[in-house]
Simulated assay, not measured.
Amino acid sequence: MLRPDLVLYEMSDVGASAAARRAGIPVVSHVIGRSMPANPMLGDAGINVWPDLVRDPELTALPTVFRPRPVPWNEPGTVPSWLDGLDRPLVYLTLGTVAFGATGVLRAAIDGLARLPVDVLVARGPGDPGEFGDLPPNVHITGFVPQSEVLPRADLVVHHGGTGTVLGALAAGLPQLVLPQGADQFVNAEVLETANAGRALTGEEVTADAVEERAKTLLDDARVREVAARARHEIAAMPAPSEVVRRLEEFAAHA
């Protein structure tokens, strides 16, 4: 019978943790965000990819926390050729898969950003980009883009607050305007605001006028950009995932 030396689980999968503990196998929980209650979902040790700037202080209860660098990932894709040689700021706008019925939020964001002297790349996700009708010439809408390749070219990210996009933008040192729609997105938005790494608009606050005003402020706010740059340097200094795998092997051998 196969018996693992270590069980790694995503922290909300409490069944995996319970089964491993009953079998006497050490468990390591992978932290997925700031909205999950820390206990009893944490293991004997934890994996936390969040930099100190936005790290959950409750994780200090664990005696061992592994801190791999968050590595952006996306399906292979092509970066739009018009991004080459831009002579004004680029705003990247995405609401993920536009879940939670957020088409109206995306429309408001497009209308607000279009008023600024910027180029706007909108990653619509699934659905027909044509549903938004004629768009101003500085707004370019598509389905999907390779986000990890777009972020280094951007000056501001306007998004839903998903953990992947939050960490990807921090790794690129970008200010963020978060328009949360559900799940952990509201907590992520609050964390970014508290750290002064971004701003948020929620519910009825999301209007074209408000998006225009907040985006303009973030593009000009040197303090927010400084905090975002600090997060980028911190993430770059975190150990590579391959190094953390080696440390996990040592942890399992001595647990």
Rank of each mutant, 00 (worst) to 15 (best):
E212T: 09
V224Y: 03
V224D: 06
A215Q: 04
V224C: 12
E205T: 07
R225C: 04
V211Q: 07
L219I: 09
A210M: 09
G203M: 08
D209V: 09
A200Y: 06
E204R: 05
L219P: 01
T202I: 13
V224Q: 07
L218T: 00
L201F: 10
G198W: 03
E204V: 11
D221N: 08
A222I: 14
V224M: 09
A210Q: 08
R214D: 15
T202W: 07
T202P: 01
E204T: 13
G203K: 01
A208Y: 05
A200Q: 10
K216Y: 07
K216F: 08
T217Y: 13
V224E: 12
A208D: 10
R225V: 05
R214M: 15
T217L: 14
A200K: 11
R225T: 11
K216I: 04
E226C: 07
L219H: 05
D209M: 08
V206T: 05
E204C: 06
D220K: 02
A208N: 09
R225Q: 14
A197R: 01
T207A: 12
R199C: 03
G198C: 02
K216M: 10
A215E: 03
T202F: 10
V211E: 14
E213I: 04
A197E: 05
T217A: 15
T207C: 14
R225S: 12
R225N: 11
L219K: 05
G198M: 02
A215L: 05
D209R: 11
E213A: 15
R225E: 06
R199W: 07
A200V: 09
E204D: 15
V211I: 11
T217V: 08
D220M: 01
R225F: 10
R214C: 10
E205S: 03
T207E: 08
K216T: 13
D209I: 09
A200C: 11
A208H: 11
L218K: 00
E226Q: 13
T202N: 02
D209Y: 12
E212I: 03
D221W: 01
E204F: 07
L219E: 04
G198K: 01
T207M: 09
